[in-house]
Design a protein around this nucleic acid. Structure first.
Lengths: 206, 206
DNA sequence: GTCTATAATTTGATAGAC
DNA sequence: GTCTATCAAATTATAGAC
């Protein structure tokens, strides 16, 4: 399959355009002609790089997942306090909304999961698995005493809350909706944090 | 606009089919011919009842919202303890997943909000407003001392978490994902509840 | 690699007979 | 109210010239 190693400039621009389209309108909300127009080529040229829509969708989701995970970094990195990793995680979602002004691919493709070709569906599924694993690791560090199952449940809760928060904020056309949920999540999920604007970490209370 | 008072049998069957299609595949994932096949008529007959796709989508969302709110009941009903109302609320979402095996319309249409005609978008937005208002009222009853803003934030959190939980559970093809999030939400949002299977209410501890 | 041209299908929507 | 027939546009995708 294409793009296993290094995408060309045109391929990158096609992936960028397709990602933006999907994150706004969903998998069935864009066409090859749309992408062609965005990039400034013809739709046949898009097909040259990505033979089918299924191929393009799969590559878009795969690149998105890899980039997201890369930005998150290693959840076991000793230099990073676990609550800072959680903070970074939540801020990552906030950037999707505020900077990109788009949905998360996992959220929008996950919602229409039944409508997706199997390879795209598999990539969406994998995004979820990867994030739950990453978060589970962070929660284990944050609270080493608790059961593994509890860490996973908390991971699930955070991922679900953030995806839902993106949807609610976009439906209400109010970014603050996301921010209020994010604050509450920081408060709930990381007991070291207060809900005031105090990002400093107390020694080790509670 | 149609359906203001009483839909005919055929109109109801069209709305049922359209709702099921949208909740699985999204707004752009169904056609008038799909609906016609589901109902057993021709696509021109569907257009007779709902002239445009925008009309159909709007009516589907409007009926869904009204039905959901009706099932929730009055959030101020004195006979219902507020934590029971929250429990009912969460169980309502669980039924969408387990019985219907579909998304919530707010979740799937909210995700692709940019791709929707304005009238449909307005109905989606209204669903969110109605639910946040309903939940806010319940949280106010549950904790009369807290700020109004806090109640609204909690309402936002619950709605977002449940929508995200539906997405995560469906993407992972594992209903238990939803159940684990739901349990955690009951624990977090209603301090009277333990996370054990104990639905009885203690007198007034904490 | 990108183009023109086009095939094959599907889409939302309408006209008019019954 | 449902049908047949049809339209115009859009869709995914391919063939072949440059």
């Amino acid at each position: 399959m294409a793009l296993q190693y290094s995408p060309t400039v045109t391929q990158t621009r096609i992936l960028d355009a397709a990602e933006a389209r999907i994150r706004r309108y969903g998998y069935h909300g864009f066409s090859f002609r749309d992408i062609a127009t965005d990039v400034g080529i013809r739709s046949a040229s898009v097909h040259y790089h990505f033979p089918t829509k299924e191929d393009l969708g799969t590559q878009v989701m795969r690149r998105y997942s890899a980039r997201f995970l890369h930005r998150l970094g290693d959840p076991k990195e000793a230099a990073q306090a676990p609550h800072n990793l959680l903070k970074r995680y939540i801020e990552g979602f906030q950037k999707l909304l505020v900077e990109d002004k788009m949905m998360c691919l996992y959220g929008i493709l996950g919602a229409e999961i039944c409508a997706l070709p199997a390879p795209v569906r598999d990539e969406v599924k994998r995004f979820g698995e990867d994030h739950i694993k990453w978060l589970k690791t962070v929660y284990r560090r944050l609270n080493p005493g608790q059961k593994k199952k509890t860490s996973k449940t908390k991971a699930l809760c955070l991922l679900a809350s953030l995806e839902g928060a993106l949807i609610a904020a976009r439906a209400a056309e109010d970014t603050k909706y996301f921010e209020r949920i994010a604050s509450e999540l920081m408060r709930t999920h990381s007991p070291l944090y207060t809900n005031k604007k105090n990002n400093k970490v107390p020694s080790a209370s509670r």
